[in-house]
């Protein structure tokens, strides 16, 4: 009997992987950003997040009901290093909407509290 209090919002995350080879890490990143309107670069994936901040961010995003992609940076050290330089942001997770860096866990939580996250995410629809 599932507990009535065990409310887990439906999981709208799909893990994406790189299917083809790319000449530079820049191309890899830009391919991922252009083919996924909302993408979260995180440690692990939504089923098995490997870091508390990544897990929190997935659950925050799931409350909005938009589908989003996740990419496990632990599977690709080139992207893990390259993305930090690409967007001048030192930590993970990193959320991108329409190719623009929105922020890490702190900023996403702050945007949630300020009620600004909803509009930012709907820009991707």
């Amino acid at each position: 009997m599932t507990s009535p209090f065990n409310v887990i919002s439906e999981n709208h995350a799909t893990e994406v992987r790189l299917e083809q080879e790319f000449s530079t890490v820049q191309n890899k990143i830009e391919h991922l950003l252009s083919s996924n309107p909302i993408i979260l670069f995180m440690k692990g994936n939504s089923d098995t997040p490997k870091c508390g901040f990544s897990a929190n961010t997935v659950s925050v995003l799931n409350t909005f009901g938009h589908n989003f992609a996740t990419f496990d940076i632990l599977n690709d050290v080139e992207i893990r290093q390259g993305l930090k330089e690409y967007s001048n942001w030192p930590t993970y997770p990193q959320l991108y909407v329409k190719g623009e860096l929105i922020g890490g866990a702190d900023i996403i939580t702050e945007l949630l509290h300020r009620g600004e996250l909803k509009d930012i995410l709907s820009k991707a629809l």
């Binding site: 030192p90 860096l101 929105i102 922020g103 900023i107 702050e110 600004e116």
Partner: peptide
């Protein structure tokens, strides 16, 4: 500035 840009400015 967006929140991320504000934080990046401080980090820089």
């Amino acid at each position: 500035l967006s929140l991320i840009k504000q934080h990046q400015m401080v980090l820089d």
